[in-house]
Amino acid sequence: MRKASAAFRLLAPSIAVGVLVVGCGPNQATPPPTTPRSAAPVPAETSAADKPRTIAPSPSPLDLPVGSLYRNPANNRDEVVLADVRHTAVLIGDSQAMPKDSWPQRGISALGYKLHVVGMGGTGFVASNGKTGNYIDALQRGDWLLPYGDPPLIVVQGGGNDATQKATDAQISSNAERLLAALKKRYPGARLAMIGTLARGADNGGGRRSEVDALLGRIAAKQAIPFVSAGDWLTRYDAVADLQDGVHMKPSGHAKLGTVLARELGALGLTARPDTDTSVSSE
């Protein structure tokens, strides 16, 4: 009995350890595995291609000073900004039209238009002067600075230099038709008109100048464009005495024929529209 008690005392610590081990066994709840918390989403970096782009607007011709050049995106040509293009007539001509108070300028401005004049002495539908080409070449090369916008009227005057340089009817007709087609395309809203070649008339020594005037009249009729014949004006209106060199007019002749031209253009219905500012300026 004493041996049994001694044995028990020896085994008691081992039993206690076993109980402790069992108590820490499967009967104790095991904490669930920890789930990592999701991090806040980081916005993706925007690439340069995805970022909105700010495109600087092209300068508007309305913001440019008068006289500035503007590259018209519609035709890729430099054009001049005018103060009031809606009330400005464009005159294309030779030395008859170039003086500021010339009879073509006087006649057009008397109808209530401002003026923008292009061209040069010695040129025509075929004729050139060594500094610039004929009318259609000068237009296509950009020798002239035509206006930006929509002029109400474009008037083409000339033919005298074509007569002097002995251009043929076929050459004059071809170039004149090309010029008119180009002007119609560039300014579809403008009215076109033509002024013929100043001369003495077929019965008074007008010669080739009067012939070219008649030819231009036929071209205008074919194109349904108003035409003013000047092929006999020097004799019809007693203006021979107003010539300064046999071809060009003195101031008295410009004044006389300017009045005639205004009357003729008005009769063709080319007077400026009622809302046109009647003040006159030459660009």
Rank of each mutant, 00 (worst) to 15 (best):
N175H: 04
L145W: 06
V240Y: 03
R86N: 11
V126G: 00
E177P: 00
N72I: 03
A262E: 15
Y70D: 02
S128H: 14
D277E: 14
M120K: 15
A239V: 02
R86W: 00
Q28S: 08
K250S: 09
K51D: 09
A221Y: 01
A12E: 01
D150M: 12
Q96R: 14
R178D: 11
A56S: 13
G142Q: 08
F227H: 04
T235V: 06
A12P: 05
A89Y: 04
Y113Q: 09
V21M: 10
L270V: 11
G205Q: 07
M194S: 02
T164M: 12
A167T: 04
L11K: 00
A97Y: 14
A97D: 07
D143V: 03
S210I: 01
S174C: 11
E177G: 03
D150W: 08
T34S: 13
N134F: 01
L82F: 01
T34Q: 15
P31W: 02
T54F: 15
S38P: 13
G201H: 03
P99H: 10
P65C: 10
I136S: 14
I172K: 05
G93N: 00
I154G: 07
D84S: 14
K114M: 14
A74V: 10
I219G: 05
K114A: 15
A110P: 02
P36T: 12
S102P: 06
G160I: 08
A230H: 02
S47Y: 07
Q28F: 00
N75I: 08
M194E: 04
D84K: 12
F125E: 00
K222R: 15
V212D: 02
T54Y: 15
R218K: 13
L10C: 14
N75V: 05
L153T: 11
A97P: 13
G124W: 11
T278R: 15
G207L: 05
G121E: 08
S279H: 12
E45M: 11
